[in-house]
């Protein structure tokens, strides 16, 4: 069971067709096992979000095979890609992306609309998720009445409520001050302890250091600093492979 990695890239690469074509993510192999906390750093424009979009089934790679929970996503029909995305992946963004006119509860419940969770179940599960992120007392608040940290917690609750196997976070603390960022990061640590698989993009080195494993992207090339290889962590860029 746990032997099946959550993320497996086999020579996955993405070139935006352009013109001119932009090789935003160079072909790479990567394995992320269940329960790992992977942080990804890199300069602006290096391809971090591109990587996240591929891993999150938002963009389809132009090369290679991406297996999510062992399911080869290559050539899946759109309905199944969307289904996988809704059920197995939770997203957390720098800018929260909460619907401003919906309460915290409704925002969280929205994550169960497209995944076939019965309406009756939704409110209870959304409430549970909000309690989990420490917002049990702000359930009916509108996002505009919440602090930045609270908003990001709502977003995390929304990402968790569909019980995904993977949480993808793009600069989750980018819009937060140090104190609120710390509380959000503590929440992520908690989730990691509970066995959630996390991939967190950040350019804050202190945030990156919290991960059990840190990858770097530079000019679309994904690399892992040497010496931190774990048995389950397998990473090689396609360029290394051809060079070897």
């Amino acid at each position: 069971m746990s032997s099946v990695p959550v993320i497996e890239f086999r020579g996955v690469g993405l070139t935006y067709p352009g013109p001119p074509p932009v090789p935003a993510f160079l072909p790479a192999d990567l394995v992320v096992s269940g329960g790992e906390y992977v942080t990804i750093t890199g300069p602006s424009g290096s391809g971090k979000s591109t990587f996240l979009n591929i891993a999150g089934l938002i963009d389809a790679p132009t090369r290679g095979h991406y297996l999510l929970d062992g399911v080869d996503t290559t050539g899946l029909p759109d309905s199944e890609r969307a289904g996988l995305r809704g059920r197995r992946i939770g997203f957390v963004f720098q800018s929260f992306h909460l619907l401003p006119h919906r309460s915290a509860l409704e925002n969280v419940a929205l994550a169960m609309v497209y995944t076939g969770v019965r309406r009756r179940e939704r409110a209870a599960r959304a409430r549970e998720a909000l309690v989990r992120v420490g917002l049990g007392h702000r359930i009916d608040a509108l996002p505009t009445r919440l602090s930045g940290g609270e908003r990001q917690r709502v977003a995390i609750a929304r990402a968790l409520v569909a019980r995904p196997s993977l949480l993808l976070c793009d600069e989750p603390t980018g819009n937060l001050d140090t104190a609120t960022a710390a509380s959000v990061l503590a929440l992520l640590d908690d989730l990691h302890k509970d066995g959630m698989t996390l991939v967190v993009i950040t350019h804050d080195t202190s945030v990156a250091a919290r991960g059990s494993r840190t990858l770097t992207i530079r000019d679309g090339r994904l690399t892992e600093p040497p010496g931190r290889d774990t048995p389950t962590a397998v990473l090689r860029t396609a360029a290394d492979r051809t060079g070897a």
Partner: peptide
């Protein structure tokens, strides 16, 4: 547009 993107991440199709 942001909401549309978000809904897509939540599993919505075009």
């Amino acid at each position: 547009t942001g909401e549309i993107g978000l809904r897509r991440t939540l599993g919505a199709r075009g």
